[in-house]
């Protein structure tokens, strides 16, 4: 999806860019909603952390990226993978633990990666990603590719030393690196209002001598614009930026989480703030896209997710041989 050159124009996105962005957000939403349903049947092994509600962040950032760029993600990584162009059917098969999965059934939901797409992996370690993207940003800088690297991390990881160290290093080395703090209000069950000592995660940017921006995470256009500005600055050698995206996740920390720590904020968000609803209303109102076009995308996405699940369920499981392969390249 992001293999085509950046879809941003002076005024924002053209019609093709808007269609791509909508398709990306809708794909993430349907992927996650379907997983929510399927997980309840008991067919999916392990842990699944859903990104539903947060689509505008991954999409708003990644619609500014191209094939030169890299991202690192989190345990809540499906949305970032889809936004960076990882193949959806392979992802679904991976989550089902099948041999046809993106990682041949050896990674699972928390470790989907496709380095050929510049996707360094969902990451089971909170705060695992930010140091890594300092490396991909350094490689881009040394090799002069013009590439930019983005670390997505949550409000929980914003308190990890790795994240703070990575921001310092990115500033010291003046790297083309963007730190996107996805503040969905909870680190597992712990409120970010309590766990983050600063008023805002973005306030910490000052401590590293970089710009810090707060964005409404339900507003695709706001994220897209803020990320676009930061990414353009990084590409031009202007160094890193910290962007805090604030929103609410629609499901629990993981599937099965009874969410007894929360008030009823999700219903309000789904009804009043939802990124897809807002996107749809705006582009129809401006006349940039029609309802029929958007409905057609919805239908195509549904079809894709349906096929993904059907194929994933039917796909072969890994064999005993796969247990021992790919520990090393040579050993």
């Amino acid at each position: 999806m992001t293999d085509r050159a950046t879809v941003r124009t002076e005024q924002g996105l053209d019609a093709d860019g808007l269609r791509d962005a909508y398709r990306m957000m809708r794909t993430i939403r349907e992927f996650e909603e379907r997983l929510h349903t399927e997980f309840a049947t008991g067919d999916i092994p392990g842990f699944v952390h859903l990104y539903a509600g947060e689509e505008a962040s991954a999409t708003g950032v990644c619609t500014n990226l191209d094939g030169r760029d890299s991202i690192a993600s989190t345990h809540r990584g499906h949305g970032h993978c889809i936004a960076k162009g990882v193949e959806v059917k392979g992802m679904m098969a991976e989550i089902y633990g099948k041999a046809t999965g993106t990682c041949r059934g050896k990674g699972g939901s928390m470790h989907i990666a496709d380095l050929s797409k510049g996707m360094l992996g969902a990451n089971g370690i909170v705060g695992g990603g930010p140091p890594l993207i300092c490396g991909t940003a350094l490689a881009a800088k040394i090799q002069g590719t013009g590439g930019v690297s983005v670390a997505f991390f949550g409000d929980g990881a914003s308190n990890q030393g790795t994240t703070l160290e990575a921001m310092n290093l990115a500033a010291v080395w003046n790297l083309p690196a963007i730190f996107v703090a996805e503040n969905n209000g909870y680190a597992e069950s712990t409120s970010s209002n309590w766990s983050v000592a600063a008023d805002n995660i973005a306030d910490r940017a000052a401590g590293f001598g970089m710009p810090g921006v707060i964005v409404d995470g339900f507003d695709f256009f706001a994220v897209h614009e803020a990320a676009g500005e930061a990414i353009a600055r990084a590409r031009a050698g202007g160094g890193p930026t910290l962007i805090e995206v604030k929103f609410t996740r629609y499901y629990g920390h993981f599937e099965g989480d009874q969410q007894t720590y929360r008030a009823d904020e999700v219903a309000h968000a789904r009804e009043e703030l939802d990124c897809l609803k807002r996107f749809r209303a705006r582009v129809i109102e401006t006349g940039e896209l029609t309802a029929a076009e958007l409905d057609a995308i919805d239908a195509e996405v549904l079809q894709l997710i349906e096929e993904s699940v059907t194929e994933a369920k039917a796909a072969p499981v890994p064999t005993a041989d796969d247990l021992l392969t790919d520990v090393y390249i040579t050993y």
Binding site: P131, L132, C134, G135, T136, I142, A166, N168, L169, V172
Partner: peptide
């Protein structure tokens, strides 16, 4: 020039950066 980098005393960040750079075509 440009290929020997001093780092802050920040092992998580620069060891991680070395790992990340290795996935992106360098041999750190």
């Amino acid at each position: 020039p440009g290929r020997v980098l001093d780092t802050p005393i920040s092992e998580s960040a620069f060891v991680g950066a070395a790992v990340g750079a290795a996935t992106a075509g360098l041999r750190p």
